[in-house]
Amino acid sequence: MYDVVIIGAGPAGLTAAIYTRRAAKKVLVLEAKVYGGQIVNTLDIENYPAEEHISGYDFATKLYNQAKNLGAEIVFEKVISIEANGKQKKIITTDNVYEAGSVIIATGSENRKLGLPNEDQLVGKGISYCATCDGAFYKNKKVAVVGGGNTALEDALYLADVAEKVYLIHRRSEFRGEDSTVSRLKGKENIQFVLNSNVTKLNAGNKLESIEVASTDGKVRTIEIDGLFVAIGRIPESKAFANLIKLDDAGYIEADEKCHTNVDGIFVAGDSRTKDVRQLVTATSDGAIAATEAVKYISNLS
């Protein structure tokens, strides 16, 4: 029996582990893959207070070690569901069942896919969701980026320095990303904007060869590319809890600023909850709040 079980070992979950351990609670962190969360894809974090530059890997590793050194137990198992029978919570993983007084969900989000039929088969064969990981494979080749937010814009900028040609495909006429990034993009000669357009088909043999792009006025064109970087946003990892916990229409776990869900004793921290600003600093902030609330909840139980 644990005081607190935390689901997810990203910045929110590991920060919650630090706070609950410092409150001397018995804490278990469950992680489906590896610790760190999506921040490990970031080469250089420049907006975390008091850290002018730190890599996502270094940040995640320091945070992991901090939680571990404080005595948090971290186990690598995927959570399938939670059951709440009054004061006691059961957390069911692929391998075990754990019991806890309270639960903090910090599962984050995953890449949104285009939803095209052969997309999954082409991951690693021309389709990528991480420009900083895979951009270097496309030296002097032709690539496209899909999306209109900051990630898409930054991916296009990064790829423009590596690839011969970058098409930036966006379904609207305006980008959601920051203006400063948009103007930097306009200064790159090898970036071509393909606006008001959607990717409708992936043409591939053994690997991706071209994409079909349809514009909103009905014109369809084929663009030959070697790589397609998908940056159309993220979707919350909340399916496992949908039977118990209230989600909004987009699948985010409904929560207030105190990180409470609709179930007593179950809290949510980080990108998987409803909120406006999803940043590293708000994830860690959520971790602290959810942990404090969880500790309060357990103290009131006894």
């Binding site: 590896v34 760190g36 894809n41 080469l43 890599s55 996502g56 890997y57 995640a60 990981c133 270097a136």
Partner: peptide, 11 residues
């Protein structure tokens, strides 16, 4: 792997 790849370092 590559040295610049965060997820590679995690694995």
């Amino acid at each position: 792997y590559a040295d610049w790849c965060g997820p590679c370092k995690m694995i």
